[in-house]
Design a binder for these strands. Structure first.
Length: 259
DNA sequence: ATGCCCGGAACGTCCGGA
C-alpha cells in the first residue's frame, strides 16, 4: 500500500510546525505540496529530512512554488510544465517514486475573469492536458495531485451561487477540468463518493468560512487507469484546517494497493 | 463588496490568494 497526499500549505515556512505535526501523525508515503512561497534555498529541507522524508523542490520567491516529499527515494524530478518556455511561474514538479509517476500541481487561480490571468489559467490547463496525454502513453501508474483551483460540480461548493462569477467555477474552467478526465483520468475522491456533497478542501480565511463550513472542493488527485485499478481510499483530512495558524487548504490523501 | 483574513516583502501598505 502506498499513500499519496496533496496539500496547499500557503507558505511552507509559515506552516512548518503544522506540517511537521501532520507528518509525524499521519505520515503519508508521498506528500505533494503547493504554494510553498519560497526559493529552493529557503525550503526547510533539514527539518523535513529529519522527519524521514526525501525532498524535491521547485521554488519561487514570494509566490507559488511546489515540492514533493517522499519516504522512498525520489527519481527523475522534473520541474516546470512543458509547452511555454516564457512561463516562469513555479507551479509544476513531477517525479518517479517506486514505479509510480507523480506530479504536484498548483493550477493558476485565474481571477478576475476576462483578464490575462484567466487566459493564463485556461492556457495552463490546455498545456496540462497535452502533457498528461503524453504521460498516459506510458503504462506506469500516474497520480496528478494538487490545487486545481477548479470547483468541478455544484455539490463541490457549500454555496455554488456564491461562485458563479469566479474563475474557479466558470464553465470554461470546469470544461477544461472535464477534458482532463476525458483523457482517461479518474478523480479519486469523486470516484469513491459519487454524488456526495458537503466535502470540501478549502475554506476562506475571511468571513469565518471554516466555522460556517462554507467551503469548496478544489484540491484533487487524478489517477491513470493503472493507478485507479489500485485505488483503495480517498479521504479529506479536515483536522489540519482546524489547527492554530492553519493553511486555508486541508490535505487530501489517496491510498493505492500494491501493484 | 474583493472587503471582513492571511503571507510575503518591507516598514507603509500593496499584491496575490480563491
Amino acid at each position: 500500500m502506498v499513500s499519496i497526499a496533496t496539500w496547499n500549505v500557503n507558505s511552507v515556512n509559515a506552516r512548518l510546525p503544522n506540517l511537521l505535526e501532520w507528518l509525524a501523525g499521519s505520515g503519508p508515503d508521498i506528500v505533494l505540496l503547493q504554494e510553498i512561497k519560497c526559493v529552493d534555498e529557503a525550503f526547510p529541507r533539514e527539518a523535513i529530512e529529519d522527519a524521514g522524508y526525501n525532498v524535491a523542490v521547485h521554488g519561487q520567491k514570494s509566490y507559488n512554488g511546489v515540492a514533493i516529499l517522499s519516504r522512498a527515494p525520489i527519481d527523475e524530478a522534473m520541474p516546470g510544465l512543458p509547452g511555454d518556455d516564457a512561463d516562469e511561474q513555479a507551479r509544476y514538479l513531477e517525479a518517479s517514486i517506486g514505479g509510480v509517476r507523480v506530479a504536484t500541481i498548483y493550477l493558476p487561480n485565474g481571477n478576475p475573469i476576462g483578464t490575462d490571468k484567466f487566459a493564463y489559467k485556461l492556457g495552463w490547463m490546455a498545456r496540462l492536458r497535452r502533457h498528461a496525454a503524453r504521460l498516459l502513453e506510458d503504462d506506469q501508474p500516474l497520480v496528478l495531485g494538487g490545487d486545481y483551483n477548479v470547483i468541478p460540480e455544484p455539490p463541490d461548493a457549500r454555496d455554488p451561487g456564491e461562485w458563479l462569477g469566479d474563475a474557479l467555477f466558470q464553465p470554461e474552467s470546469r470544461a477544461a477540468f472535464r477534458a482532463l478526465l476525458h483523457l482517461g483520468l479518474t478523480e479519486a475522491f469523486r470516484a469513491l463518493h459519487p454524488g456526495e456533497g458537503g466535502h470540501y478542501s478549502f475554506w476562506d480565511y475571511q468571513g469565518r468560512a471554516w466555522d460556517r463550513d462554507d467551503g469548496i472542493r478544489i484540491d484533487h488527485l487524478l489517477l491513470s487507469a493503472a493507478a485507479a485499478d489500485r485505488l483503495e481510499s480517498c479521504v479529506i483530512d479536515k483536522a489540519p484546517r482546524g489547527r492554530p495558524r492553519a493553511s486555508d487548504h486541508t490535505p487530501v490523501i489517496v491510498t493505492l494497493r500494491d501493484g
